[in-house]
Each structure stands twice: as structure tokens, then as C-alpha cells.
Nucleic acid binder design. Structure first.
Lengths: 243, 243
DNA sequence: CGAACTATTGACGTCGCTCAACTAGTGTGG
DNA sequence: CCACACTAGTTGAGCGACGTCAATAGTTCG
């Protein structure tokens, strides 16, 4: 894939108008191609890591395991997202990452990124923006867990996923293909798998959204948005901002 | 206050060994001194903002308001923290910020920061680290809401606050002064104020921690850590890493 | 000394959890 | 080709953590 067309470039271009120098530096990030099978643990909490990944194809999730064995999924990653960026800035990774589907990614060394900042400062700004956008998503996720009912959480979550996927051309207002199980949803939304099932049934029976057979279909996009209190502003994805 | 001693410099020094050039660039961030009274809304969600703040003295909180009027506090800020960094990278602020106590801060223009990156790339890395650390805290907060009981949440929350404050010299293993009300705790932990009260009583009666009269006292630090599943690794604050 | 905020406690309701049983699809080896 | 295992999904019964509502103090401040 041409670097000009890569999901990451497309995403960063939503914020900064990248120049030739930035593009060249970014291209240097994409030298080591790697593949992973579903279920592979790409990064383990506590591990020292000198490289991160840029996801080109497939889905992954970042999570933490609690002492009692419970899991909280923090974020799902889709093409164009960094995997484990924090793990190279920190002494040890503060979370684990697991491949959900088969994954194609490029490995990026810490030194590539840090040297890149010195050569292309605009790129540093773009990466800071990408990290801030990730944080904004985690924040919205936090609000979801803190102050919304199970039904509202699910509505908001499915809408966010749809919005993110549509940015990389993998979904629209009709719906999207989704490889997640009800267990993934439970661990992400802080619910039990049993309750996830009930909530999905309820949303389906109310004619709002249908999640079956690996596909999410928005039956009534607007009513779903109203239920989930969903507003895309925090995704900040409406065309280049910094020129 | 000398720039060498400012809380922000101390915090960033925990990650990168800052050079003279970085220090000078950082000093340029500290020109516009501002004060705010308790309760002042320093940043409003949806607002366009061209400047952020570096907190020198006092406490603030970042929060979101839901359509039904409920509030979720995302983070509390203490000296050395950025206020509204995301708001200058995004088109509009995705959250609001309120002064809890009287606040002393310096205002930083977006251009100061972005120009600073071009002149001192190490500083860009340091700011990215600071943003990542903020994200790590939000992530831990998310795990807190998703998978811990009210009692565990409270334990974890008070321990995190203590750890952060001790980094800037405002607390230790004994305890710390804390200007938060039970309503603040409720909005941060996704609980009702009534339940916060009950949980605090329970923790006090179990001899774990006492929160009264604006002071948090760790009655049994180790048992509290065990209860909250608290591990400081995600704060990544054990001495300079990148040299 | 009233007004406004903060903290405390009880009674009662409910959302979401646990446990358990059952179905359906899928893959695997004999 | 079937038996078995394994995973994902579905549904019911019962229960407990936490919410809501309401009443009462204690504190701070004008």
C-alpha cells in the first residue's frame, strides 16, 4: 500500500496538512511488516517494549486484567491506529494488547518515532493529536461507564465504532461488519455477558439496532443517537484543522 | 517561582533529562500569569480555545455534562498538570474545566507549544509523555469504573491522588490535604453522593482510611493498596527514563 | 441568625449480577 | 459420518449492590 493511502496517513491528515518531509518521515515508520493470528497477545502488561505497531488491517483490543482475573477492555483498535504507543514512552507497558482478527501491522521502533520528531516537528504535533484523540475516546468511554445505563452504553458504543470505521471506509449509517463477541462487549462495557445479551435483544426489539452474525445494522440511526447521547465532536474528524 | 523548580518541570524531568534549550523553551510557556476563584469555569465544553493553562497552585477538575444534567468528572488536576491541552489541538473543547480551589496558573498559547516543538524536539517528546501519562490515568480510572466495587474504587482513587500529590511534595504515605467534597467524589467515581458517604464510613470503620475535615489519612496503607488493587506502575514516575 | 452548602442516616426500589440450563454452530478425530 | 468437545448465544430465577427519596444535623458565611 502506498504511504499516501495508508489508514494512518489518512487519519493524521484529518488534523494536519502533512508536507513532503512529514510523509517521508512517516514512510520510514513502515519498514517492518508483521502479521499476527487471532488471539495472539501482541503486548503484555508489565513488559518492557521498544517498539509499537501501526495497524494496517484487522481488529485488536487493549485491556487490563485485574487481580481477580476480571478483564476491562479499554479500547478497540482498527486500521490506522497505533498499538502500544504508550508502552514505548513508559518504562513498562501499562496494558496488554490482543489480536481479535488476523492482523497486518508495521512495527515501529521507539527510536524511529523519537528521531522522527527531531526531523519533522509537524509530525510530532500530528502524533500528539492522534494520542489526544485516543485519550478523548477513552474519556468518552469513561463517561459511558460512569453515568450511562447498560442500554445507553451499548448504543453509544456501537455508534462510536461505526463513526470510527466510516473514517477508514469500513462502515456507514447503515451499519458495519463487526468481529466482536458478546464477551468482548461485556469486557468493554463493564457488564456481564449475560446482560449484554439481554440489552442487545432489547435494542433489537425496540427497532434501534441489530447485532447478529458479525454485522451491526442501525435500524433507526437517529433514535439510537438520541438514546446514547452520541455526539461526534470528540472524535474531531471533520477535515484538516492545522494547515 | 524559578522555572527549574516549577511543578511542570519537575514532572517532565521524571521522564526526560531536559537540556538548557528545553528549559528555555519551557520558560517561554510561563509568561502570562492568571488567577481564578473557586468555582470558576475555566473552559467550557464545545468552546473554541486557543490557549491552555499550566497549573501552578490549587486544584481543578475536568468533566463532562450529560444531556440529563448528570456530571462525570474525568480527572482532577493538581500543580504541574496541563489544563485543556486537548482543547487547543481540537477544533472545540471536548470537556469543561472548573476551578475547585483558588488557582494560580500560566496561560499557554497554542502557538507557543507548537513553535516550541520545532525548536526543542525533546520537549515534544516530553509533552507527548505527559499526555500519555494523563491517558494512562484516565485508563486506570476507566478500569476502576468498569470492574471495581464502590469500596475498591474509593480505595484506588484515594491512593492514586496520594501518589500524584507526593510527586509534587503535597502528600505522603500518612495522608494529604484534600479540598474535594463528597459530591466531587461521587461525580468522579460514578456513584451517588449518598453512597459515597456510606463507603467512606465503611472504610473508616474497617480502619483503612479516614477522610474528614479536608484531610485524607491512610490508617492502613498496605491493606488499602491490597483492597484497591493499586499499583503505581501506570504513573511511570520512578525517575528519569529517557536520557 | 438565616441561607446555602455539606455530611449523615434510614427505608425501599431496581438494575444488573450470578448461577444454571439449554440451543446452535463448528471443528476434530476415530 | 457420527460422537464429542468447544465456543457463542439465549433465557429464567433469585439476589445484592447501589440508587432515589426523605429527613436531620453540622458548617460556613454574609
Amino acid at each position: 500500500m502506498n504511504i499516501l493511502q495508508s489508514p494512518l496517513t489518512r487519519k493524521l491528515s484529518a488534523f494536519v496538512a502533512l508536507e513532503t518531509l512529514d510523509m517521508e518521515t512517516l514512510a520510514r515508520f513502515h519498514r517492518r511488516r508483521r502479521s499476527f493470528l487471532p488471539g495472539h497477545e501482541m503486548l503484555h502488561e508489565g513488559q518492557k517494549s521498544r517498539s509499537a505497531f501501526i495497524l494496517a488491517e484487522g481488529w485488536a483490543c487493549a485491556y487490563k486484567i485485574l487481580p481477580d482475573g476480571e478483564r476491562q477492555i479499554v479500547d478497540f483498535q482498527i486500521p490506522g491506529d497505533f498499538l502500544g504507543l504508550r508502552s514505548i514512552l513508559f518504562r513498562t507497558a501499562d496494558h496488554s494488547i490482543e489480536a481479535i482478527t488476523r492482523i497486518e501491522a508495521t512495527e515501529v521502533l521507539a527510536s524511529d518515532i523519537l528521531d522522527g520528531f527531531a526531523q519533522a516537528p509537524r509530525l510530532a504535533t500530528a502524533v500528539l493529536w492522534a494520542a489526544s484523540r485516543d485519550e478523548a475516546m477513552v474519556v468518552e468511554h469513561l463517561v459511558n461507564l460512569g453515568r450511562r445505563s447498560a442500554e445507553e452504553r451499548m448504543a453509544h458504543f456501537l455508534l462510536e465504532l461505526g463513526a470510527r470505521l466510516s473514517l477508514v471506509g469500513a462502515g456507514d449509517k447503515e451499519g458495519f461488519d463487526c468481529p466482536l463477541t458478546q464477551y468482548h462487549l461485556a469486557d468493554a462495557l463493564g457488564l456481564s455477558a449475560v446482560h449484554v445479551n439481554r440489552v442487545l435483544r432489547q435494542l433489537r426489539e425496540e427497532g434501534l439496532v441489530t447485532f447478529q452474525k458479525g454485522r451491526v445494522i442501525f435500524d433507526d440511526f437517529n433514535r439510537l443517537k438520541a438514546l446514547g447521547g452520541f455526539d461526534t465532536a470528540y472524535l474531531d474528524q471533520d477535515g484538516p484543522f492545522l494547515r
